[in-house]
Amino acid sequence: MQAYLKLDHIDKTFTRGNATTEVLKDINLTIAKGEYVSIIGHSGCGKSTLLNIVAGLTDCTQGCVLLENREVNSPGPDRAVVFQNHSLLPWLTVYENVKLGVDKVFASSKSRAEREAWVMHNLNLVQMANAKDKRPSEISGGMKQRVGIARALAMEPKVLLLDEPFGALDALTRAHLQDSVMALHQKLGNTILMITHDVDEAVLLSDRIVMMTNGPSARIGEVLEVPLARPRKRLELATNPGYLKCRQRVLEFLYERHRFVEAA
């Protein structure tokens, strides 16, 4: 497999005063171009920390992140993040929120008109073009997350990082948005790294599922290939033996071998 994004022996320890907590221990992961990889684990296992390390928002203590064989250790638009709580700027309209990134990334490579067209193109991709002049407070949670996805996609990232992107949404909106992300992945062929705690979501969307053990010192417990053909259909998969088997494997890992012991 050709490594596109490589997490090489990543350790992360937090030091507060004299107490040192080891959060992540020896994380190794190689992701190919166009792959959709999910990281699943119980809350507190450090999966969000791992995503922040890839995004460059947090420094790792040991090891490094390689993107196309080049080390990356600061945030940048080549690893755009879709945040869990959308993180749209409330004083900007939907259009302006997407444009903020576009203006920065394509400042020299695209003309003003091209940038505007590119913003609209990306809003169209997530079906939010007609709400372009609304402010985040005027649209629903699902719509906000669509805009968050458009903002990330518009930066043409090499890797798209999704930090529990559907966590704050109700079940129906979540399903709808999952289908949208699946369609976008199919159409654009992005490399995606997603954090999730939803087993069905992980199996439905991913090519591979990375299962993390409980912290402290969380490591990768198991990596599961999801050998389901794309495009995947939610309803058909519900009875698909391959899907059920994958689901079973993840559930066993999370609830038998690495049960969440601490009081939540």
Binding site: A55, G56, L57, S74, P75, G76, P77, R79, A80, V81, F83, N85, S87, L89, L100, G101, K104, V105, M155
Partner: peptide, 21 residues
């Protein structure tokens, strides 16, 4: 909020843009 700072970091706003935007 840290979220806004993260957004600014990913978009790579320079200090002046961060201040005004």
């Amino acid at each position: 909020p840290q979220d806004y700072r993260n957004v600014a970091a990913v978009v790579q706003l320079n200090p002046l843009e961060f201040f005004s935007k």
